[in-house]
Write a protein that binds this DNA or RNA. Structure first.
Lengths: 345, 345
DNA sequence: GAATGGTATGCAACCGGTTGCATGTCAAGC
DNA sequence: GCTTGACATGCAACCGGTTGCATACCATTC
């Protein structure tokens, strides 16, 4: 059936020789050919050389799918993110890929687009053909995640579920540094422009802002920007300016960038009359003015997550792992001294 | 072996029942169970219901890998891009995913990092377990690509090889409009900030600039920014200003953004004393000032490419397809009237 | 009541590898 | 010269599905 359709319907010659053909051509058994590729140390050097030579001539490549069926090892992992287009993810994806590559693994990418149902569907499609999963900023509920974790090694990024290996980007230190920085510049009233309520990162950041502000006697109000994006950030500007604060910390860089655009539209100069701090450090110096931000090392998260997945796949670490990545403040040009009360608008 | 390691080494119960267990539990043959899932119309409605019910109770899910082995259809496709972190790609990836998803396909993502050898390696890993490939901005040489195309349906994005289905983002019309726009604003000398010499898009753009400039009697010089990035764009500013041109078209938005930063550092105001045009329209209004750019509809490219791949996979289109996506100019705030000669710096 | 035909199900081979165990070969040791 | 054992290779079962063909069953029809 398969053969027929191959040679019939399309002209694709599909001259992918099988192990049997190589075996016949080199006068050995299929087992020997198999071993020449997967366990050459079991064979004479001469045999290996001869088989490989003939295989090469025929253009033979071991069939991954067949191998996976008999060994149970497919050499694939899956990475599911909540939004490929959010600049936070590409560096993470890139780093994860790189790490997987070094281990000879192929990576499936899934994009849940912030939708739990979609994410569940993707997991279902992937789980049968991967040896492990990484879920970044998963929107799935805990129960589902736990269930998947019993089927396959699974690592979470920025999601804190007890008993499941996870890597968390701990932005609290960076956020605390940002508050300290603003306090030193003389700001007394600040705003936190918040992201998705279900987001672990948002909770982290919101709490860190509160805690640190309280410690230093600053007043902080919260203004939502949901879903977090350039546009919602821009729209938040009016409300923020009206509230009388002199500085804002945004849930992420995109929101911060939008906020700066909104401020510019209202003729509020940054950093002269207002200071802005972002989170993630994914835009570098490309904003205007260059954004002071909390660096979250998102690339490292991808790398570490795949690393943990690998060790879980081979031999399996016994205990759970809760890997924290820390953060620091990068001071650029979007923050400055608080405007003096009298001269302010 | 597999069973042992599953139940032994780790505690992962791996209670994934096989078709045989479902067959035994429901008192039918394996063939019947198989058909209940893949060809239910062959069976009595009652049988299908009964089998599915028991399968559901046992938690049975058909094993993709085994299915792929016997049918040759794995339900996977691969997408290889030259740089995930370049903002041109995420929207493309997202759109490609979406389209693949609708067809029930899983997508492998590969990141060549602009390296042909790496790209070749990735193709090799993927090709055995996918039904088709999409190569975006491939850096592979023609011969390799042709060889892969004989093995599997393959679609190229922004690479023009005769006989192979490809989708090309034709930026020529947009670039021509940009030149016209600059000419109308009174610019007579302009620069093209060029990208990778091996890039099809760069050749397109360079030629379009030349052709249109000649038609309108503008003078154009070329200044390289390689590899194309924010930084190389920024560095190009000095040379560009020194050359005396009053406007520049950059290979892509990132380079344009860098160029604007470089100009700002030299105290050259955009658009008052210098105009800048980007390419791709991937940054939206987020630059300062908002960038006039040639919109390349990169998301559409991903969508169309997967669409073509699908039709090639099912039944196969006979002739080759060369799908052109066109472009248009988006005028924002980075372009303005040419500074008058006398008053210029 | 036997021939006919349509249909639901089972049998068994197959997809392309891997691997436990059996076998054959050859050199060393007595 | 025969036993012993190490080692290279082959045999055949297995991974978990799919599918061509055979068969058994049932309802028509003459």
């Amino acid at each position: 059936m398969k053969r027929d359709s191959d040679s019939g319907g399309k002209e694709r010659p599909s001259v992918v020789p099988t192990i049997s053909q190589v075996a016949k051509a080199s006068g050995v058994s299929r087992a020997t050919v198999s071993r020449a590729f997967s366990r050459p140390e079991m064979l004479t050097e001469a045999t290996v050389r001869r088989v490989k030579e003939i295989a090469g001539k025929l253009g033979y490549v071991p069939n991954q799918v067949a191998r996976a069926l008999s060994t149970g090892r497919h050499g694939n992992v899956a990475l599911i993110v909540s939004d490929v287009a959010n600049p936070f993810f590409p560096p993470l994806i890139r780093a994860a890929q790189l790490r997987a590559d070094q281990a000879g693994l192929c990576v499936f990418l899934g994009n849940s687009d912030e939708d739990p149902a979609r994410e569940e569907l993707l997991v279902g499609r992937f789980i049968g053909q991967v040896e492990g999963l990484v879920l970044a900023s998963s929107r799935l509920d805990e129960e589902h995640i736990r269930r998947h974790a019993t089927r396959r090694p699974l690592v979470l990024i920025n999601r804190d579920i007890e008993g499941i290996t996870r890597v968390l980007i701990d932005t609290a230190p960076g956020v605390a540094a940002a508050i300290a920085h603003l306090a030193e510049l003389g700001h007394r009233h600040i705003a936190y422009v918040s992201g998705p309520t279900t987001s672990w990162s948002n909770q982290q950041r919101r709490n860190a802002v509160r805690r640190e502000a309280e410690k230093r006697g600053l007043k902080v109000i919260a203004v939502p920007a949901r879903p977090p994006s350039y546009d919602t950030g821009r729209l938040a500007a009016t409300q923020i300016v009206a509230s009388g604060v002199t500085a804002a910390i945004a849930f992420d860089d995109l929101v911060a960038q939008g906020l700066m655009a909104g401020l510019a539209a209202l003729d509020v100069e940054v950093p002269k009359s207002f200071s802005v701090v972002g989170c993630d450090d994914v835009l570098g110096e490309t904003t205007y003015p260059p954004l002071t931000t909390v660096s979250a090392r998102c690339a490292d998260a991808g790398d570490v997550a795949v690393g943990l997945l690998l060790s879980q796949m081979n031999g399996g670490v016994s205990g759970e792992i809760r890997h924290k990545l820390n953060s620091h403040l990068v001071i650029r040009a979007s923050t400055g001294p608080a405007p003096s009360r009298r001269r302010g608008r």
